[in-house]
């Protein structure tokens, strides 16, 4: 693991100076700004558009703002996350910027782990900031209402993002080209979406983590119902990163 700390510092500098983190934060926070407002004012918007009365709308509650937030973030947010951090290793492989640090003795595992951790860190910071903004704005627009399990739902959603990010290094090692890092996450995402229709496998599907925070928050489901999916995601993530390290050591640059 020689060179891990200096390379981690380099990765952090890179994610800041190339505006990757800033862009991700802005994207997610913009969802957080839109979601509570959209939830709160949807009846008014419909009224203005003149279709009021055609559909019976219940009065919006605080949970609606989180429903809005998660549905946007689980689609556009995850897409932005993958586009921003999907090339974190592929880019260096195809540009050749890793060659010099490697010849100075940087361990390949250290480079891979630093990159993975910084992508997870970027996801964590962006999601936390966005959730905080969403939470405060929800409190402001829906005063006096309480939403349960905010952190639990958020954590399971976070793990879904981590799961997809952990496929990026393995994909980058296996698939050549600047976008090699997106091949495996894309393929896995598609497969898991298809697998969602099989009830037997449903509870193990990592995507459940992204689709069920709302149920958890609303108290419809017990927290434990996510346990199989949580374990699947955590174990798969660890295995994928470890496999990527082993394969990266053997691959030629």
């Amino acid at each position: 693991m020689n060179g891990f700390l200096p390379f981690l510092k380099k990765e952090i500098t890179q994610t800041l100076r190339t505006y990757k983190l800033l862009i991700l934060v802005l994207v997610l926070v913009s969802f957080a700004v839109m979601s509570p407002a959209l939830a709160r004012f949807t009846p008014e918007i419909l009224q203005l558009s003149g279709i009021e009365g055609m559909i019976a709308l219940p009065a919006p509650v605080a949970l609606d703002s989180w429903i809005q937030f998660y549905s946007t973030t689980s689609q556009m947010g995850i897409l932005a996350l993958m586009l921003i951090y999907g090339g974190i290793l592929s880019g260096e492989k195809s540009k050749g910027t890793l060659v010099l640090p490697l010849t100075h003795g940087l361990s390949r595992s250290a480079a891979l782990l630093a990159k993975y951790l910084v992508s997870v860190g970027g996801w964590t910071v962006s999601l936390a900031l966005a959730a905080l903004v969403n939470h405060l704005y929800t409190l402001y627009l829906f005063p006096g209402e309480e939403v349960a399990f905010v952190l639990g739902g958020l954590a399971s959603f976070w793990l879904c993002g981590v799961f997809l990010l952990s496929l990026v290094p393995l994909s980058s090692v296996l698939v050549k080209g600047s976008f090699g890092g997106l091949a495996l996450p894309g393929g896995v995402l598609f497969t898991l979406l298809v697998l969602m229709i099989f009830p037997d496998l449903f509870s193990f599907n990592p995507l459940l983590l992204a689709s069920s925070p709302l149920q958890v928050m609303a108290g419809v489901d017990e927290w434990t119902i996510l346990l199989p999916a949580l374990i699947t995601s955590a174990v798969t993530s660890a295995v994928a990163v470890a496999a990527a390290m082993v394969l990266f050591r053997r691959s030629s640059l």
């Binding site: 700390l5 200096p6 510092k9 010099l100 640090p101 003795g105 940087l106």
Partner: peptide, 8 residues
């Protein structure tokens, strides 16, 4: 500095 640190 980066490569120097990597070279310990």
């Amino acid at each position: 500095r980066l490569v120097g640190q990597i070279a310990n």
